[in-house]
Computed example of a mutant assay.
Amino acid sequence: MSDEEKSTAKQSSPQFIPKLKGKRVLIRLTSGGQPVTGTIESFNSYEILLQTAKGELLVFKHAIATIEVVDEPRGYRPAV
Rank of each mutant, 00 (worst) to 15 (best):
V25K: 06
V25E: 02
V25N: 03
L26R: 15
L26N: 13
L26I: 07
I27D: 07
I27Y: 05
I27Q: 06
I27G: 08
I27P: 05
R28F: 12
R28L: 10
R28M: 11
R28A: 14
R28D: 10
L29G: 03
L29F: 07
L29D: 01
L29W: 01
L29V: 05
T30F: 00
T30E: 10
T30I: 12
S31V: 15
S31H: 05
S31D: 11
S31C: 11
G32N: 06
G32W: 02
G33Q: 10
G33L: 11
G33E: 08
G33P: 07
Q34P: 09
P35R: 04
P35T: 09
V36A: 09
V36C: 12
V36I: 15
V36Q: 14
V36K: 14
V36Y: 07
T37D: 10
T37V: 15
T37F: 02
G38D: 05
G38L: 08
G38I: 09
G38R: 03
G38M: 07
T39Q: 11
T39W: 02
T39G: 04
T39H: 05
T39R: 15
I40A: 07
I40C: 05
I40K: 02
I40F: 07
I40W: 02
E41A: 13
E41Y: 10
E41L: 11
E41D: 14
S42E: 10
S42N: 12
F43K: 01
F43S: 07
F43W: 09
N44T: 02
N44V: 05
N44E: 00
S45E: 09
S45L: 04
Y46K: 13
Y46M: 02
Y46E: 11
E47T: 13
E47Y: 06
E47D: 12
E47V: 04
E47G: 00
E47N: 12
I48G: 04
I48M: 12
I48C: 04
I48L: 14
I48N: 03
L49K: 13
L49I: 12
L49F: 06
L49Q: 12
L50D: 05
Q51K: 14
Q51E: 11
Q51H: 06
T52A: 08
A53E: 13
A53T: 13
A53S: 14
A53V: 10
A53L: 09
A53P: 00
A53H: 07
K54N: 13
G55T: 04
G55S: 03
G55Q: 03
G55V: 03
E56A: 11
E56N: 10
L57C: 08
L57T: 08
L57D: 01
L57K: 15
L58Y: 00
L58P: 00
L58R: 12
L58E: 04
V59F: 06
V59I: 15
F60R: 09
F60E: 09
F60M: 06
F60H: 06
K61E: 02
H62F: 08
H62L: 05
H62G: 01
H62Y: 09
A63D: 08
A63Y: 04
A63T: 15
A63F: 06
A63S: 12
I64M: 06
I64E: 02
I64W: 03
I64H: 01
A65T: 00
A65D: 14
A65E: 14
A65N: 10
T66W: 02
T66K: 11
T66I: 04
